[in-house]
Amino acid sequence: MAYQSAYDGCIARVEGERLIELLPPSIDSLMNGLTERRDGRVQLVDDYRIAFEADIINLLIGPLAEAKHVAETDDEPFNHKLVNLDALKNYGGSSDLALVNEYLQFFPADKQQKDEKLDELFTVAFNFISNAANWSAVAKLADHILRSK
């Protein structure tokens, strides 16, 4: 079911939960299941990687938005030192972090590479929420949703 709202020039559209609904056992199994030419496989795997990373970023943005809202409400700073991956559990992020960990199980890399990728994606999500224009849009959408109830 799609929800679309226009509010003060901001448009949000939500369809489904994630870009990748069912995770394959691995990227390797995804590639082995393809019968297309090599060019098609490379493009598909690249598209899959982009969707994979976007889903992780989106899962992190929810609890980060909650953390930023709480910080602003309590007149506290919002920065990487105070809000890190572990802190997201304090902002309703436990289930989101569990899904992120499920995603990372299928990421074809060793633990250090997975941790580095997660840090990279966390920084992208954190920077998204920290961006004034993005935060304004998120806040306006949240306000609109709350007033619509």
Rank of each mutant, 00 (worst) to 15 (best):
A98W: 03
T35A: 12
E15K: 12
D39S: 14
V70R: 03
L34G: 11
E102I: 05
D86G: 05
D39W: 09
I57H: 03
R49T: 13
S94C: 05
P24F: 02
D28P: 04
E15V: 14
N58K: 07
A133Q: 15
T123H: 11
Y7V: 12
P77W: 02
E72L: 07
A98V: 05
A132T: 14
L121C: 04
R41K: 15
L64Q: 01
L121H: 04
F128V: 11
P24S: 06
E21K: 10
S5G: 12
Y48D: 08
K81T: 10
L23P: 09
I61F: 02
L60R: 00
A87T: 01
V100H: 02
I56M: 01
H144V: 06
L59R: 00
K140V: 02
E15Q: 15
A132N: 12
K68D: 01
L64A: 02
L34C: 11
D143Q: 10
L60T: 00
D39Q: 14
E76C: 07
A67S: 01
I20P: 05
I61Y: 01
L88C: 00
L146I: 08
L23A: 04
E21R: 09
S26V: 02
N90T: 07
S148H: 10
D8G: 10
M31A: 15
A51Y: 06
I27R: 12
F126E: 00
D55S: 03
N134S: 14
N127V: 03
F107L: 10
V124F: 08
E102G: 08
D46K: 13
P25S: 07
D8R: 14
A139V: 06
G16F: 06
N101S: 11
S5N: 13
N32E: 15
V138F: 10
R13I: 15
Y7W: 11
A132L: 11
Q43K: 14
A67F: 00
R37G: 13
H144S: 09
A71N: 02
S5T: 12
R49M: 15
I145H: 12
E53L: 02
D46M: 11
A139P: 03
L30S: 05
D75N: 12
Y7H: 14
N90C: 06
A51T: 05
P24N: 06
T35D: 13
E76Q: 08
V83R: 01
Y91W: 04
Q43L: 14
R49S: 13
Y48F: 15
N131K: 07
D86C: 05
A142I: 11
A132W: 08
F128K: 15
D75R: 08
L141G: 10
A54K: 08
V138I: 13
A51S: 14
P63H: 01
A12G: 13
V83W: 00
R38N: 12
L34Y: 09
D39C: 09
L118V: 06
D119R: 11
N90A: 11
N134P: 08
L118C: 07
N58P: 05
K140I: 01
P24V: 04
L22D: 15
E72P: 02
V124K: 10
K81A: 07
A137W: 04
K149T: 08
F126T: 00
Y7G: 05
V138H: 09
A65R: 07
K89P: 01
E66N: 12
R13S: 14
W135K: 01
I27T: 11
E21F: 03
L64F: 02
R41G: 09
N134K: 06
A71T: 03
R49I: 13
N134I: 04
F52T: 03
L23T: 06
F126H: 00
